[in-house]
Design a protein around this nucleic acid. Structure first.
Lengths: 137, 137
DNA sequence: TATCGTGTTGCAACGGTGTTGCAATAAATT
DNA sequence: AATTTATTGCAACACCGTTGCAACACGATA
């Protein structure tokens, strides 16, 4: 019988391999957005390239979304359940702590509609809040 | 007699060198945010490290502000005149075109106040609009 | 205008991030 | 169990960004 993570993977047309199952578990357990490096450290060893491709595959299949919080390195967090390949429900705000560097999804705060200058066509809005997180205060 | 750019540099406690004058001119003339590479290409030759340090110095002195538009590479744009060392007036929205990759300051649109989740202390808010710019439509 | 101190530049060397191509391997299907 | 196809792991590479150090130029002072 398949594990829970294996079923999730298969539902997204992703083969349930050891690497992927473990990575997906990390995402499910993580209370914050995690980096490529965080995942590498959680393994005894994992090939960097494989990890890059796994993250890309997860993102394409709507399992995770990528967050650019201005720290210079990409972070990833699990999408809430109703994300799919065509549409990511990552239209919430993200919070980045300047002290510990952690980044969190702020699901409660939706990205507001921002009136754009007429000449540009806006299709997506990204908002990152910076400051000090609960832990660091 | 000092050139205009030399005077600007000196007013920020930056020595007026050839490299800096030319770079500042590029910023003054640029209609959009420019990258490290853009500047390199504008010179016959410029040392990469010098450029990195010049950009950092300009940023610290409030001449330019750094923009992370999610494209992966840092972009820089000139601050409007009343920026200073302590406070950057870059609290406007930026627009990033997904087609040409260009990024523009949208000075007209100020970053709105976003109600933050109570547990985190928010000190800065970054907003990047994505879409198609006027040129690319 | 010659000298001097300090800021700036340019070079060497390095670490991190991310990508592509290819061969070996493992998963799902029959 | 065999086959097909996706996935993995390795090699090699390109780019971004930083630090340390020596050489140099700016701006001030005499």
């Amino acid at each position: 019988m398949s594990s829970k993570v294996a079923r999730i993977l298969k539902s997204r047309e992703l083969r349930a391999t050891n690497v992927r199952e473990k990575i997906l578990e990390l995402f499910i357990d993580a209370p914050k957005a995690i980096t490529h490096r965080d995942i590498e450290l959680a393994f005894d060893y994992i090939d960097r390239i494989t990890l890059y491709r796994t993250l890309k595959a997860f993102e394409e299949k709507g399992l995770i979304h990528k967050i650019e919080d201005g720290s210079g390195v990409a972070k990833y967090a699990r999408c809430i359940d109703n994300c799919d390949e065509d549409h990511h429900h990552d239209d919430h705000v993200h919070f980045h702590c300047n002290d510990c560097g952690d980044t969190f999804c702020v699901e409660e705060v939706e990205v507001p509609y921002i009136k754009s200058p007429s000449k540009h066509l806006v299709t997506k809005t990204t908002i990152v809040l910076n400051g000090t997180c609960e832990q660091c205060q």
